[in-house]
């Protein structure tokens, strides 16, 4: 048995799970997009108690690396990186949209679908998935876009994530997986690792540059 701690803070859910390589032993998700810092660590402590494991029992950490709103996203990533360093165990990155897609797959979802999550600023992070040989395979790199700028052909697909909740007029067919579940993320990470597929680095998928402008010429104060 290999004990995996999984966590994700890229969506509205602050989600943590302990997985034993076969099944999720305990999971806790709290819907609060504004209190990641407060909620995450107590959730980890509680999930470990529920799964009856101590920090020393952990063999690995898997973390959602987004894309997602930056401030919350970093809370999960720095937590995972620090835990891995402190406990001397490996940390792997998972695209958070892939974790959502995996849950859609497990729930028996459609063969061709979209995941669109909240990117704030009236945009969504999105990726398209196809079910191939029993797994949800992402078609290309995750991207950020205004929903109205996505082609009708994509927006017409069944769509998981909060995109359809926020923009019901633009995404015609909502699916009911809205946020990342750490249990699904753990399960996806386990499958990927067994298949020998390379995980993502433990680094945020920002997809946007910091929006600061270099200092402009000074404006005179004299009239």
């Amino acid at each position: 048995m290999s004990v995996l701690l999984a966590l994700d803070t890229s969506t509205t859910a602050v989600t943590v799970a302990v997985h034993d390589g076969t099944r999720t032993l305990a999971e806790r998700s709290t819907l609060d997009a504004r209190r990641h810092t407060e909620i995450l660590a107590p959730s980890i402590r509680q999930v470990a108690i529920d799964a009856d494991v101590t920090p020393a029992d952990l063999d690995a950490v898997a973390v959602g690396v987004g894309p997602g709103p930056f401030t919350g996203l970093r809370v999960g990533i720095v937590t995972a990186a620090t835990l891995g360093h402190t406990l001397g165990i490996p940390v792997t990155g998972v695209c958070s949209l892939d974790a959502i897609a995996h849950e859609v797959l497990v729930a028996g979802g459609p063969a061709d679908f979209l995941v669109a999550s909240d990117a704030r600023r009236k945009e969504v992070y999105w990726a398209r998935y196809a079910i191939v040989e029993g797994r949800a395979v992402r078609q290309g790199e995750p991207a950020v876009a205004k929903p109205a700028d996505l082609p009708q052909e994509l927006r017409g697909l069944p769509t998981a994530g909060r995109g359809p909740v926020l923009y019901p007029d633009l995404f015609a067919t909502p699916l009911d997986v809205l946020d990342v579940s750490a249990g699904a993320l753990a399960s996806f990470a386990t499958i990927e690792q067994r298949a020998g597929r390379e995980p993502l680095p433990v680094r945020p998928l920002y997809l946007r540059q910091p929006d600061a402008m270099p200092a402009a010429a000074r404006k005179p104060v004299l009239p």
Binding site: H36, T37, P55, V75, V78, T79, T82, L83
Partner: peptide, 13 residues
Amino acid sequence: MVGVSAAKALSWA
């Protein structure tokens, strides 16, 4: 938030 989250991870671990 980055420092506080790291500190919590250390404290728990």
